[in-house]
């Protein structure tokens, strides 16, 4: 009869641990918590404003919000960037300055550095335009389980680009934390960004 007693004791311990853990669970985020699901931030791209090659190290002490899009994007990209811009505007000036929005163009042919720099600048100084060759972009998007595709050009030469509509949010260490989606509300984005700024590192 010794063994069943031990097994019962072990089972009770496990159940107890699970329950305790459940109670200690932290308050939920407004955005989707994806910590641990994807690898840490890593890239080598060209910054549009000064055409310098930069890596993730250039944003080491910032909270990073990465978004894939293109400047000819009719609705999704400007909407997402505008919402991020609004969220940053709601935050403390000091906190907002701890955040960088990395807009990675997946349409490098049309998004020449000058055009891309001008585009991101219209959303605020904390927005950074990044571009790279298609192979680099493929590698980066694949790392975050995302992709993009170019549609057929119409008569005027315009073509659509399918891309991720998510914003990938990394903490100061470059670890993935949250995933922003189209229907997140602006207050929620601001609150989560504040929380990341405050909880992390300082």
């Amino acid at each position: 009869m010794k063994y069943p007693a031990r097994i019962a004791a072990a089972a009770l311990l496990v159940i107890g641990a699970v329950l305790l853990n459940g109670c200690a669970e932290e308050e939920p985020w407004n955005l989707r918590d994806v910590s641990g699901l994807m690898p840490e931030l890593e890239f080598e791209l060209t910054r549009a404003e000064d055409e310098q090659t930069v890596t993730e190290a250039a944003f080491d002490d910032k909270i990073k919000v990465m978004y894939f899009g293109f400047t000819s994007c009719p609705d999704e990209c400007p909407m997402t960037l505008a919402r991020l811009s609004q969220a940053l505007g709601q935050m403390d000036e000091e906190d907002a300055d701890q955040v960088r929005v990395l807009f990675v163009s997946v349409d490098p042919e049309r998004d020449q550095p000058e055009r891309l720099a001008k585009y991101v600048d219209s959303f605020g100084e904390r927005f950074v335009g990044l571009r790279g060759g298609i192979p680099d972009l493929r590698e980066l998007t694949k790392r975050y389980r995302s992709t993009f595709g170019h549609g057929k050009p119409d008569d005027s030469g315009f073509y659509d680009v399918s891309h991720s509509n998510a914003t990938y949010i990394f903490d100061r260490d470059g670890e993935i934390q949250l995933l922003g989606r189209e229907d997140d509300d602006i207050d929620g984005i601001a609150a989560d960004l504040e929380r990341l700024v405050e909880s992390d590192g300082w």
């Binding site: 998007t141 995302s146 992709t147 659509d160 399918s162 998510a166 989606r181």
Partner: peptide, 13 residues
């Protein structure tokens, strides 16, 4: 399944 919008689709559809 909004994850396909999140990840981007293979071609616009």
């Amino acid at each position: 399944y909004d994850v396909y919008a999140v990840c981007g689709r293979a071609w616009p559809i």
